[in-house]
Computed example of a mutant assay.
Amino acid sequence: MPKIPSRYSYFAYGVIQAGLTCSIAAAIASLPFAEEGRFFQHWLRSWSVSWLTMLPVVVSATPFIRRLVDRMTNHS
């Protein structure tokens, strides 16, 4: 697996975190479509829209959230 420079770790974190969170939320929201046999189509559309929406939010919020958590905890 190719390595990403550590200065981009916040971005890699955001891509993975937003992708995982959105995939779970989209799966939950798509459950009613399972009976109709349209679960995957609905899930893929829901996941795509939510991931493209949340990725910039997560990437831009991650540094702020890390600083906030550092202040709230005994981080050295």
Rank of each mutant, 00 (worst) to 15 (best):
V58E: 00
H75Q: 11
S76D: 12
A27T: 01
A27L: 11
R71G: 13
R67G: 06
A27V: 03
S76N: 15
V15I: 04
F11S: 12
R71L: 15
R38L: 15
S76T: 07
H42A: 13
S23R: 03
N74F: 15
W43N: 05
V57K: 00
F40P: 02
F39C: 01
L44D: 08
L55P: 01
T73W: 09
P2A: 08
L52W: 09
S9I: 08
G37T: 04
A12V: 14
F33R: 04
L55R: 01
R67W: 11
M1N: 07
F11M: 04
G37H: 10
V58Y: 01
P56L: 07
A26W: 12
S6I: 13
E35N: 09
K3V: 15
I28R: 05
V57E: 03
R67L: 13
N74T: 10
L20G: 13
S48V: 06
I24F: 14
L55Y: 08
L44R: 03
T53W: 04
S76Q: 15
A18I: 04
F40D: 05
S6W: 13
R66C: 09
T21H: 03
L52N: 06
D70V: 00
P32V: 02
H75T: 07
S76K: 12
A26S: 13
S30K: 01
I24L: 14
A34N: 00
F11I: 14
E36S: 07
S48N: 05
R71M: 10
R7E: 08
C22E: 07
M54L: 15
H42P: 00
Y13R: 06
W51M: 11
M72S: 15
E35Y: 13
F39G: 04
I24P: 00
S6D: 15
R67A: 11
K3M: 06
R67H: 08
V59Y: 04
R7F: 11
F39A: 08
S23T: 15
I16F: 08
P32G: 08
M1C: 10
V57L: 13
V59I: 14
V15Q: 00
Y13K: 03
R66L: 15
Y10S: 09
Q41E: 10
L20C: 11
N74P: 03
R7N: 08
E36D: 12
L31N: 02
S23V: 12
G19Q: 00
T62A: 09
V59C: 10
V57F: 11
R38M: 14
S9F: 10
L44Y: 14
M54Q: 06
V49T: 05
M54I: 04
A18P: 03
V69Q: 02
T53K: 04
F11P: 00
P2R: 05
P5W: 07
V69K: 02
Q41F: 09
S50K: 03
A27F: 09
